[in-house]
Amino acid sequence: MGTQWSRSESDSSLLLVPEVGTGWQREDDDDSLDGLDRQEDIARFPYVEFTGRDSITCPTCQGTGHIPSEQVNELVALVPYNDQRLQPQRTKLYVVLSAVLCLLASSLVVFFLFPRSVVVEDDGIRSVTVQFDHVNAKVLINMTSSLNFTNSNFFTVMVDSLSCQVLYMKTVIGTMQLDNVITIQPLSQRQVNFTVSVQISGSTSYVYAFCTMASIKVHNIVVIMQTSVKTSYMMRTAQNTLEAYRYIDCGSNSTVHQPPRRLWQ
């Protein structure tokens, strides 16, 4: 009822020989082990490095099955050249797709943030008010003009200042200055009305006689309006100027709208 160990003379290896009259018996309980029990048994089996006649112990782990923690930053893993990890798939497709996406994003940024010029349209004169100073022989005129602003940008535009100067025969007869005029929203239009007070006297006092002459029905005079507009947007400042001729009836008040004569940017 036991196992006998014997050593043959021709071989130095040990032989496991069962006793006579006895055989290998497997209990029925061994057949009842399922796959899970076998996996648990294998997991509890310690690491053993088997070395043969033509093999040597791993110099890195010294047969322990793990790398020392102090050598983690010193060791380099060698991967075969034909390893699948060194041959990524669809590399060209990813590179082309990334380049196309970058170009598309850049184009959108340029399209939405590229500054465009603010279009200013002269809408002419809205009304003219004429008064006379008979004592000093002066002609006092208030001219109300209009400007239309068109913002084609995708951001807000500020109209910082609007100035106007009126000349008659190269003589300045009126000025006007407005600051912080309006704010124009993206892709929108705004209109600005401004009034310039004009006084004709002194060296041009003959205009008073012309404007008050009863024998003339229409007392038209020509004045020059020089208008300047300063706008700012996206850390950029722009200035637009216009010089236009105005025909004014200095003999009476007028509220007839005179259409624009020039488009400027």
Rank of each mutant, 00 (worst) to 15 (best):
Q89Y: 07
P68W: 06
N73K: 11
P115V: 12
V128I: 15
Q87I: 06
I67V: 15
T64L: 11
S55P: 00
D83P: 00
I56M: 06
S98Q: 09
T57G: 09
T91I: 09
L93N: 06
D133I: 02
R85N: 07
C102P: 02
R85Y: 02
A99P: 02
V110E: 02
V110Q: 01
Q62C: 05
V130W: 03
T91R: 10
Y81L: 15
V110G: 01
F114M: 03
G63Q: 09
V135Q: 12
L86V: 00
V100Y: 00
D54M: 04
P59G: 04
Y94S: 05
L86M: 04
H134G: 01
P68K: 09
R116H: 05
L75M: 13
P115W: 05
H134A: 11
Y94L: 12
A137Y: 10
V139D: 02
T60N: 12
T57I: 15
N82C: 06
C102R: 00
L104C: 10
F132Q: 04
V96Y: 11
F50R: 15
T64Q: 06
G52V: 09
F132L: 06
V128E: 02
V109S: 07
N73R: 08
Y81C: 10
Y94W: 13
F114L: 06
G52W: 03
P46D: 10
L103C: 15
R90V: 04
Q131D: 15
R85I: 14
G63L: 11
V139N: 03
L104T: 13
L101I: 14
F111A: 13
V130M: 07
D54Q: 07
V135C: 02
V118S: 04
D123F: 04
S106K: 02
S127E: 02
P115S: 06
L75F: 08
R126A: 09
R53M: 06
V135K: 13
H66M: 09
L86Q: 10
V95N: 07
R85H: 02
R90C: 12
V100C: 11
D54E: 07
S55Q: 12
S98K: 04
V100F: 03
V109I: 15
I56T: 11
R85E: 08
T91C: 08
Q84S: 13
L104H: 02
R90G: 10
P68N: 08
L108M: 14
V95K: 12
S69F: 03
L104P: 00
